[in-house]
């Protein structure tokens, strides 16, 4: 890969970051934008994940997993004068492949599955699960334990296994730490 042609454009300026020293971030992850990106301890960022803080700051809690091709952060310039609301992802959240998260808040232990899309300003409660290809509209507020599945059907999950799920995410992070070479220095 070393003989790759270099782009004539100067590299995009790095966004200001506050990264915990225990995170795992792959070299091919991309952090872009101008506002602050904060990432808590033991979080894993897969290669080709995109975090864009061009329009609003991003805060990611601890023990989260952000998979490849997912896009975190506000994607479009806000239309009115007001500044876009920051994107906050709480602890233990799993964002799977290709998901788009523009939410104001994603509650603890939530799972956002493959190619799901969370609109701007939406608020997800704790331990929500958004199924593959499902959407949450802009500004929508979901109560805790909501599950969205199929063609946008909803239910409340009261199985009470959220503690086990959080433990599983922690175990998964430990495994990914061994598998994904981390390169924090590139992003600081």
């Amino acid at each position: 890969m070393s003989n790759k042609r270099q782009s004539m454009m100067p590299p995009a300026p790095k966004p200001p970051t506050s990264l915990s020293s225990s995170i795992v971030i792959a070299e091919h992850a991309s952090l872009t934008g101008t506002k602050l990106i904060m990432i808590g301890s033991n979080t894993v960022i897969h290669p080709r994940a995109k975090l864009n803080s061009a329009y609003a700051p991003i805060t990611i809690g601890s023990t989260c997993i952000i998979s490849e091709r997912s896009q975190i952060g506000i994607l479009k310039e806000p239309e009115d004068e007001e500044e876009a609301e920051p994107v906050v992802i709480e602890n233990g959240v799993v964002v799977e492949v290709g998901a788009i998260v523009e939410a104001r808040r994603v509650g603890e232990g939530s799972v956002i599955e493959v190619n799901a899309r969370i609109g701007k300003g939406a608020v997800l409660g704790k331990h929500c699960k958004i199924g593959p290809l499902c959407e949450v509209a802009e500004g929508e507020v979901l109560p805790d334990f909501t599950v969205i599945f199929g063609n946008g059907m909803r239910r409340i999950d009261n199985s009470g296994v959220e503690d086990l799920k959080m433990k599983m995410v922690a175990r998964q992070v430990e495994v990914l730490r061994k598998l994904i070479p981390s390169n924090i220095a590139k992003f600081q």
Binding site: E68, M168, R171, Q172, V175
Partner: peptide
């Protein structure tokens, strides 16, 4: 498209 080995918890250990 993307090919990704699946992962699960088995006997208390997570593995792909």
């Amino acid at each position: 498209c993307e090919l990704r080995p699946p992962g699960k918890l088995y006997k208390g250990q997570f593995s792909h």
